[in-house]
Amino acid sequence: MNSDFEIITREKETWGKIYTDIFYAIDNISPFLPEDFLKKKKFYVKGKVLKDFINLLEEEEQKGNKKGFFNKFSSPNLSSINNFKAQNKDTLTQLENCSKCACLNCVVECSFKTCSGCRRNSYIKTCDHSKINVRLHSGFTLDLTNNDTGKENKFKVLATLENCEKEQEYIIIQNIMDSNDRYILYLYPGIKEDTYGEITDEEEFDLIAESFESIEA
C-alpha cells in the first residue's frame, strides 16, 4: 500500500507543477488577449483534463487519511489513475509540452501558427514574436530516399521552424546513423503527407541555420 501512495505522490509532484504552470499562465494572459485568440491555445482549451486528473490524484491520496472497516486504512485505486492517463494520453502529453512552450505566457497576438502548428510531442522552444520561431520534437522521424543514390535512410527531426513574414516553414533533419549528415529543407505540410524542397537562397538558408544553432549553443 505504501508503494501505491508513493506512486501517487510522484504523480502529484510531476503533474502538480505542470498544473501550476498552465493555470498560472492562463490567469496571467487572459486579461490581455481576446477570448477567440485564447481559444486557439491548446492549454487553454484542454486545461480541464489536467484539473480533473489532479482532483483524481487528490481523491486517491485522501484514502490514506481515512480508516475503513476494522480501523484499517483504505487503499488507493491505481487502476482508476492509470485508466484516466490512458484515456487522456494525448491531451496530457500535449499539456506537458505546453508547460515548456514559449507561447505559454505570451500575450502577443502574433501571425505564427502557434498551437495549430503543433504536432504530437512538440513545443516551441524560442520565438522572436515577429518573424522566426523554432519548434522542437520528440520521437519524430522520417524515412527519406536519396535521389542521387536511391538509398533510403531514417532521419530524426531536430526542429521545424516558421518564418511568418515569408509564410514559410522549414525542417532540420539528421541521419540517425550519421550525426554529421544534416539537411535544412523547405517544409510543405499536407493533409495526407508532407513534402520537402531544397533551399537555394543562401541568405535564407543561413538565417534558418543560425536560428537553430542559437538554441544548440
Score class of each variant (00 low, 15 high):
Cys106Gly: 01
Lys67Ile: 13
Leu161Ala: 07
Asp194Met: 08
Phe5Gly: 10
Ile184Ala: 05
Tyr24Glu: 13
Ser211Cys: 04
Phe205Thr: 01
Gly64Lys: 02
Leu158Pro: 01
Lys166Tyr: 14
Asn82His: 14
Ser79Val: 05
Leu187Gln: 09
Tyr24Leu: 07
Gly197Asp: 01
Ser116Arg: 09
Phe205Lys: 09
Leu33Cys: 03
Val107Asp: 11
Asp36His: 12
Lys41Asn: 14
Thr149Ser: 12
Lys72Gln: 15
Phe205Pro: 00
Ile7Val: 12
Lys51Glu: 06
Lys100Leu: 14
Phe37Thr: 03
Lys12Gln: 15
Ile22Ala: 06
Glu193Asn: 06
Glu198His: 04
Lys125Cys: 04
Val108Glu: 08
Asn71Arg: 05
Ile29Arg: 04
Lys17Glu: 15
Phe37Tyr: 04
Trp15Ile: 08
Arg135Gly: 00
Lys151Arg: 13
Val134Asn: 01
Lys42Ala: 15
Ile171Phe: 12
Glu11Met: 13
Lys51Trp: 01
Lys48Leu: 15
Glu213Asp: 09
Phe84Thr: 05
Cys127Trp: 01
Asn175Arg: 11
Leu57Ala: 12
Asn28Glu: 10
Val157Ala: 11
Ser122Arg: 01
Asp143Tyr: 10
Ile171Cys: 14
Ile176Asn: 11
Asp206Thr: 10
Leu104Ala: 03
Ile173Met: 03
Lys89Thr: 13
Val108Ile: 10
Thr14Ala: 14
Glu198Lys: 10
Ser75Glu: 15
Gly190Leu: 08
Leu57Arg: 11
